[in-house]
Each structure stands twice: as C-alpha cells, then as structure tokens.
Simulated scan of single mutants.
Amino acid sequence: MKTASQSVYASLQNAFGSRHIYHTHRLGAEIAAGEKLTHRSYVKQVRALRALADRSAPQFIVTIMRDPVARLYSNIFHREAALIARAAAMDDLDSISGVLWARASAILDRNKDYYIREFLPLGLNIMAPNTEVGRTFLVFRMEDLEVTFPATLKRVTGKQVSLIHKNDASHYGPPTAYDWLKRRFVLPSGLIDELYEDKVVRHFYTDGEIRAFRERLRSNARKKSSEPLTV
C-alpha cells in the first residue's frame, strides 16, 4: 500500500529480532480474488496468517494510514518508475498518460475499502482499534509516523524503537521524476473528492488536515520545473 510498512518492519526486526515478526501488504485479498501471487508474496502472506491464527502468544498488529492521494501517486511511481523517469526527462506526459491512467484505475479498484476488507475478517475494526486479551491493534498515520511510532512502541512494549527508513520513492527512481509525476499527472477533482470523502480517511484526518492535503495538490500543480532532470 506504499505506507512505510517496510520501514516499520525493518524497525521492529532491528529492535526485537526477526523470528516472530511478519510483514505482508495483504492478508487474503489476492487469494480471495483469484489473483496471482509471486512465491515470495504468497509465503509472506501465509506466514502472517498462520501467526494471526495462533493465539497462544500475545499479538501486536500494526497498520499505517496515509493521505490517499499521496498513496496513489506513490503506488503509481512504484510500479512505473522507469517509464515515468524517461518521460519526465523529456517532459512528455502524453506518451505515457494511457499507461498511468490504466495503472491508477487498477490500483483504485484493487484498494477499494482496503482497510475495512482486510481487518473485519479478523474481527478488527480499523475505526475502533481496541486491545483485547493477547492482541493489540495499532494504527499509525504515515504523516506523523516519525513521532508517534517510537513513542507508541515505547509505551506498549517498554522498549525504545527507532524508525528505520526503507523503500521510499527514491528507491525506485530519481526524486525529480516523482516530483514531475505529481506536478504533471493531474487527477480529476471528482476523484480527489471521492478519495478524501472516504469514511476511513475522514475518521483519521481532520477537516483542516484534509484541506492542507488539497492545498499541497494545488501547489504541486502550480509548480514549474526549476532545474534540469537527471536520469
């Protein structure tokens, strides 16, 4: 979901070791939908599901929210970074716009109601995360993860856990190409409204925070490239 999960995973492994820490982007959606998984993804998914089924030891379940428009751009860049970098070098959006819209549509379809679908089968409600005997459900926001993650882990585990940065946009291509994508590939206002009116998004972000997200989008659209792109 492009929400810093690799960073959280690496941080937890570094603090607690890797034996009983599991990471998966999805718990069961691919199998339920009949989608193909790589062997590695399937193994990660099965390990996580087996761990969740074993209630003999305390469990900590961690998920991360993010500005939905930023998450969409990040997902697109993750999957089409090389193509975007080449187009950005020539400032040629037209040649790849069809690919970008197809990718965006697929991501939106796949992730619709993601947070509800993933956790309700486990008896968990992301909008009312609670702690039951032996199971703690933690929901972070990517925008303030630097502060809330170490503080929360200290409170619930008693251990200082530093956030390790992994798998950010620069891992996939030049940061300037990612900036170009956000500036030149403009989403329709109706789609932006739909993403920000999502009930889960409205639950985790205030009206003021959503207005700030929208203003950042407008600012990106107004920006002009001030330096040559190096690819």
Rank of each mutant, 00 (worst) to 15 (best):
G158V: 11
R135S: 02
E143N: 10
S225L: 15
H20E: 05
L120F: 07
G28M: 13
K159Y: 04
N167F: 03
A48H: 06
A221I: 12
E80M: 15
L145P: 09
V99L: 14
R47V: 01
A89S: 14
I107S: 03
A104I: 09
W180E: 11
D207Q: 14
S7M: 02
D207W: 06
A51W: 04
R103L: 15
G208Q: 15
D207M: 14
Y9Q: 08
I84D: 01
R86S: 13
A48E: 05
A51H: 07
A81Q: 03
P175K: 01
A32L: 13
G98P: 07
D179F: 10
I107N: 02
Y73R: 01
Q160P: 00
Y178N: 10
V46D: 02
A88K: 03
V201E: 02
V201R: 05
E30N: 09
A70F: 08
V231W: 00
G28I: 12
Y115Q: 04
S105E: 08
A221G: 04
S170Q: 14
F213R: 04
D193Y: 08
S18Y: 05
A102Q: 07
K224E: 12
L83W: 03
R50Y: 06
E215K: 13
A70I: 10
S18M: 13
Q160T: 05
H78F: 12
E146F: 14
G208S: 10
Y178T: 12
R66L: 06
R55A: 15
G17N: 05
G98S: 06
N111K: 11
S226L: 12
L195R: 10
H165Y: 10
K36A: 11
T157M: 08
K112A: 13
K199P: 05
F16L: 12
P188G: 08
K154N: 01
A212V: 14
L187Q: 07
V147L: 04
M142Q: 13
A177D: 03
T230D: 11
D54R: 06
D144H: 11
R155D: 12
N75P: 03
S189M: 11
A33E: 15
I21P: 00
I61P: 00
R50C: 13
I84P: 02
V8C: 06
S105N: 08
V139Q: 00
V231K: 02
I61Y: 01
R202H: 09
E118V: 10
R184K: 15
E146C: 06
S170A: 15
S189A: 12
D113K: 04
T206M: 08
R211Q: 15
E194K: 14
G173C: 07
L187D: 08
T206P: 02
V8F: 04
Q6S: 12
G17W: 06
L52N: 02
L138V: 12
F204L: 13
L12E: 05
L37S: 03
T3P: 00
D92E: 11
R66I: 02
D198Y: 05
L191R: 13
N167T: 09
I210W: 01
D54L: 07
V8L: 09
